[in-house]
């Protein structure tokens, strides 16, 4: 038979397991949901690119219907140029809040700001327009 004095070590093991598991859960939550906001670009419902909102850059998005030029600057994003007929996407200007989006209907393009509170739009679950 084993002696009694080794028993406290099992408590130690339990605490260790819990601590490691806890850290694991935190890391998982941070990697999947946390961090800064992103710019999600979709064409016809499919996500084709995701950029951090904090990275200043310019990108040209090629869609089957035409091109849109995208600018991310100082935590905001806009469509600067497009060869679509109505240019509504260009006229919309900058967006900066999670849940906001710029849409180019003729090109089936959406540029959406997402993040940990992505499903929330201006503090609501959805926006009626």
């Amino acid at each position: 038979m084993e002696t009694k004095k080794k028993k406290p070590r099992y408590d130690f093991i339990l605490i260790l397991i819990l601590a490691v598991a806890g850290l694991g859960i935190l890391a998982f939550a941070f990697l999947t949901g946390g961090g800064g906001a992103s710019v999600e670009v979709s064409v016809d419902g499919r996500i084709i690119a995701v950029y951090p909102l904090s990275d200043n850059r310019e990108e040209v998005i090629n869609t089957p219907e035409g091109k849109n030029r995208l600018e991310i600057k100082d935590g905001r994003v806009r469509v600067t140029d497009a060869d679509c007929p109505d240019k509504l996407c260009v006229n919309q200007g900058w967006i900066s809040m999670k849940g906001q989006s710029v849409i180019c209907l003729p090109h089936k393009l959406t540029v959406k700001i997402t993040g940990e509170e992505a499903p929330e739009s201006k503090g609501a679950d959805i926006v009626v327009k």
Binding site: Q92, G93, I95, S96, M97, Q100, S121, K122, G123, A124, D125, I126, V127, V128, K129
Partner: peptide
């Protein structure tokens, strides 16, 4: 469900 109603004065704005 919490539905936001667009402000007709600022439809693309940050406020509902």
């Amino acid at each position: 469900w919490n539905c936001g109603i667009t402000d007709p004065d600022q439809p693309d704005g940050e406020k509902l």
